[in-house]
Lab assay of single mutants.
Amino acid sequence: AVCQRCQARFSPAERIVNSNGELYHEHCFVCAQCFRPFPEGLFYEFEGRKYCEHDFQML
């Protein structure tokens, strides 16, 4: 399997985020606008991209 964002493979010891069947490295699972991790894992999706609450409100 490969990361949805960076397309790199996962190492066996690595923590992986699964979002609706899409797999991400922990450091790749970030807001599409500000590139920060999601507070408490909370995000909003718009047109296939994931956003933090602040950036989602700015759309």
Rank of each mutant, 00 (worst) to 15 (best):
A8W: 14
R49V: 09
G21V: 03
Y24W: 09
P12W: 05
H25M: 01
G41R: 10
P12H: 15
H25I: 00
R36Y: 03
Q57P: 04
A13S: 08
C3T: 00
C34I: 02
Y51H: 01
P37F: 07
Q7F: 10
C34H: 15
C31T: 00
M58N: 15
R49L: 07
C34Q: 02
L42T: 14
R36I: 06
E26R: 06
F43P: 11
F38R: 02
R36Q: 14
G21R: 04
A8Y: 11
H25G: 01
C3I: 00
V17M: 06
F29Y: 07
C52I: 00
G48H: 03
F10G: 02
M58E: 13
E47M: 06
H27A: 07
F10S: 03
E26T: 08
P39A: 10
R15Y: 08
F29K: 03
L23M: 14
F43Q: 14
Y24F: 12
F10Q: 01
H54I: 15
R5V: 14
R36A: 07
C31Y: 03
V30K: 06
I16R: 09
P12D: 15
E45V: 10
Q4K: 12
E40F: 12
S19C: 09
A13Y: 07
L59T: 08
G48T: 08
C34K: 00
I16C: 10
F38N: 09
N20A: 12
L59W: 04
E22S: 09
R36G: 10
C28L: 00
S19M: 08
M58V: 12
Q57S: 08
C52F: 00
F38G: 02
C52T: 00
E26P: 05
V2P: 05
E22P: 04
D55N: 02
R36F: 05
H54Y: 10
V30E: 05
E22V: 09
F56E: 02
G21C: 03
C6D: 00
L42K: 13
G21K: 11
A32W: 08
F46N: 07
R36K: 14
A32H: 14
C6M: 04
E40S: 11
Q33T: 12
Q57D: 05
E47G: 10
V2G: 15
P12G: 11
M58P: 10
G41N: 13
E40L: 10
N20K: 15
E47S: 04
N18W: 02
R9L: 09
A1G: 08
C34L: 03
C34E: 01
A13G: 07
I16K: 14
R49N: 03
A8I: 14
R15C: 07
F35S: 15
R9A: 09
L59R: 09
Y44T: 06
A8F: 11
G41P: 03
